[in-house]
Design a protein around this nucleic acid. Structure first.
Lengths: 256, 256
DNA sequence: TAAAATCGTTTCATAATACGAAACACTGTT
DNA sequence: AACAGTGTTTCGTATTATGAAACGATTTTA
């Protein structure tokens, strides 16, 4: 809580840092639990929560623990950033999911992470399921790698400077050189694969979505269990995903 | 800004009241514009916006005006209230929309208003389109009336005490007695109609969704232009919507 | 059954912070 | 050249947030 900041409302910052707890642990919290998580005083936490509750930003559940309230749902749905991406991606994603029968994701790079803007889940029982609005490390997912690959060289070197590549599985790329080579190959092939790099048994294909200036704005990925991703399927999957990407690109030519 | 409140963080309240501006006017705002809208001092508004920008709650658009930021999108998608309603309503709503080819809405009563939790738009060019997360007065919509009708008598009389029934069209019910009679009929028929009460040319059918205790938890509505809502269609529409309601009810039996 | 350990909540003197008028820098218009 | 818009910074003052301690109510442990 040092004041390196110029001149900001500290209690507003505190309030949102408290809400940030919910980004990591999506559960209901008590006053003392949140006080411990945030490092705030118990009374401070209590006062913040009372304030947020009065505003319908948080609310108590059946066990008198705090959960995020409906006002945040209302505000979240008003966010106009990437709104056209979200809007125009829906139907193409559904078409892809209908053909391939695997979960389809649509995301952008945000704060060095993949932010999922949209998804359509596989109709099958065994499937990948990610929450819209959640984010994931970029280096160990196909979607993240394809978004990185077509970023500027400055952005890529910045990414490597600030993000630690951690081992998720035996296949995870953990060296900067390894990732740079991988990104170069992705640029050449115009698609990315995640062969169990994030999680064992999980395979993922991703392709970029460009605007009219050939600048990357988003990516589409299809993911599922390795048992269903045979090498002979990947090419046909790619052409189906590319068809969806073309549809989206047709609508967002003025996106920047 | 009177302190009738017990002991709350006033600047946190100010911050969210500022964000509330976006609920009414979904546009980009400058510092002075927001200061005028909120009644805050220009400097206060500037400091609040700088704080919120540092937290990614708002961000500047191309014209250096403030819009809601992606952090709100992330938080909004974490809201767990009504999450299962939103989840289990999706496919039934899509099936209804596919059959009827009109826009289908799914909503609950929240703060005396209809809050739209989900929607599927009509595939036709001329269609009703409402924003998920937005809300609407209850008394002049079919969805609102059906949600009111099956509320407790206390809630209904409370509603009539606090909400002013304003004329939207010639058909709007503006008297308390008129609305009470209408709600009684809705309880008997188990569905509600909005015959151009909110907007001329706009017709809407709504039915309730109950939990296992026969308590209302949500409602489904189908809306479209009056030219496409012939009296002879309404009965067949109703049976299609009811089928969807049954599907949802099967999944939410423990909802309260 | 008593004691201890939780929980959320309230109090209040003190320390910290938000406030806002005024001045400033910048841009585009008259 | 004067004016009318922006957003931004400064700084003394008035307001507000802070947190240790005490409180009441449950639940758990001895």
């Amino acid at each position: 809580m040092k004041d390196v900041n110029k001149d900001l409302n500290l209690s507003v910052i505190k309030a949102f840092k408290l809400l940030d707890v919910y980004l990591n642990d999506k559960q209901a919290w008590g006053v003392r639990e949140l006080a411990k998580k945030t490092g705030y005083n118990k009374t401070t936490t209590y006062r913040l929560l009372s304030t947020l509750e009065a505003l319908d930003i948080v609310q108590k559940n059946d066990n008198d623990k705090y959960i995020l309230g409906l006002k945040l749902f209302e505000l979240g749905n008003l966010v106009s950033v990437h709104k056209s991406l979200r809007y125009y991606s829906r139907i193409p994603l559904e078409n892809i999911a209908k053909e391939i029968k695997e979960t389809v994701h649509f995301g952008v790079l945000n704060n060095s992470r993949v932010l999922y803007l949209n998804k359509v889940e596989s109709p099958l029982g065994l499937k990948v399921s990610t929450q819209i609005g959640s984010s994931q490390d970029a280096y160990c997912t196909a979607l993240g790698k394809v978004l990185l690959a077509f970023s500027s060289t400055d952005q890529i070197s910045d990414y490597l400077k600030h993000v630690k590549l951690k081992t998720c599985t035996l296949n995870t790329i953990v060296s900067s050189d390894g990732l740079l080579t991988e990104l170069k190959q992705i640029r050449e092939k115009e698609y990315a694969l995640d062969m169990e790099e994030l999680e064992l048994g999980l395979i993922c294909i991703a392709i970029p979505v460009f605007n009219k200036d050939k600048k990357i704005v988003a990516g589409i990925s299809v993911s599922g269990p390795s048992s269903r991703f045979k090498p002979e399927n990947i090419q046909s999957y790619l052409s189906i995903i590319k068809k969806g990407a073309f549809e989206i690109e047709a609508h967002i030519r003025d996106y920047n």
